[in-house]
């Protein structure tokens, strides 16, 4: 896979189809986010899919993922005229489509290099859809969404559920890591820092105002990549909250953010249509 990825990236850059490719490079013994460009072909030798080697593979399970879509957005904002490739697992791909839908990235300027995930990884991620649509290789279709986390909580009685969340969210140290890592959080001014909504300067982050505020904001946005939970130092199952939000939006509006055929955004379905997003 790595070799193929390398060939494809080299090709895109050589042919001038793109000016840079956002991906991962093996550097200082770990895979790190990097922008590959035509003028530094040597870097391509170290391109990485995020798989860990040797002793690190034993320490850290799964693959290394970074918010590549968010990084691409930052680079593209600074260089609006340039064209980009971006390495994507299926989750990153949903991110990129989500960013298209929210007008943060220009679909005409982005080319996706999709990497399919192995079955076991998909299971470990409890991934809703592990097969990228723009994969660079043929892949078997996979159904992997493990909803065990949602089902477990839905099965709880209300007060039990409440107690569960109070306990879990009580560990929050308000690092804002969930927001910072979220590739579809792109607002310049963040409601989580609004004095009127969430009290400042205390941990745990105000319960449940902080988490609920963030949950509202994930409506129609969360692509279920799981990067938020990976960033949470306190192992709080926050992804489950946003998954719930995502599944409600899916049921009500038949809309799944980040999926190409995900229907119309709820915002476009509400109201009298006099406020189109464009």
């Amino acid at each position: 896979m790595r070799e193929l990825l390398k060939t494809r990236v080299a090709e895109m850059l050589r042919e001038g189809r793109v000016d840079g490719v956002v991906g991962l490079i093996e550097s200082h013994g770990e895979p790190l986010p990097y922008l590959f460009t035509a003028d530094d072909t040597a870097a391509l030798e170290r391109i990485s899919t995020g798989e860990l080697q040797g002793r690190l593979a034993e320490l850290i399970p799964g693959v290394v993922r970074y918010p590549l879509g968010k990084i691409l957005t930052a680079v593209a904002r600074k260089h609006p005229d340039k064209r980009f490739g971006v390495m994507c697992r299926a989750c990153d791909e949903r991110v990129v489509f989500g960013l298209f839908q929210n007008l943060q990235l220009d679909p005409d300027k982005v080319e996706i290099l999709g990497l399919p995930c192995k079955e076991e990884l998909a299971r470990a991620c409890s991934c809703p859809a592990p097969a990228p649509r723009s994969a660079i290789v043929d892949q078997p279709s996979r159904e992997a969404w493990d909803r065990a986390d949602l089902e477990r909580i839905d099965a709880m009685a209300l007060d039990e559920r409440f107690a569960f969340w109070v306990e879990e969210l009580g560990r929050c140290i308000k690092c804002y890591g969930c927001r910072n890592a979220c590739p579809v959080c792109f607002c310049d001014v963040c409601t989580l820092q609004d004095d009127g909504l969430v009290k400042k300067g205390e941990i745990p982050a105000e319960l449940p105002a902080f988490q609920l505020t963030r949950a509202w904001h994930m409506v129609g946005r969360c692509v279920d990549c799981g990067l938020c939970q990976e960033a949470c130092p306190m192992d709080i199952p926050i992804r489950t909250i946003y998954r719930k939000v995502r599944s409600i939006v899916g049921e009500l509006f038949d809309y799944f953010p980040g999926e190409r055929d995900g229907g119309k955004s709820p915002l476009e379905q509400l109201g009298d249509g006099s406020f189109p997003i464009q």
Binding site: R171, I173, C175, I203, P233, M234, D235
Partner: peptide, 17 residues
């Protein structure tokens, strides 16, 4: 610990779990 050394505190709370 959670305020001054958060990334040690998380290990402790994991132990607790």
């Amino acid at each position: 610990t959670t305020e001054a050394h958060p990334l040690v505190a998380n290990r402790i709370l994991r132990a607790k779990q």
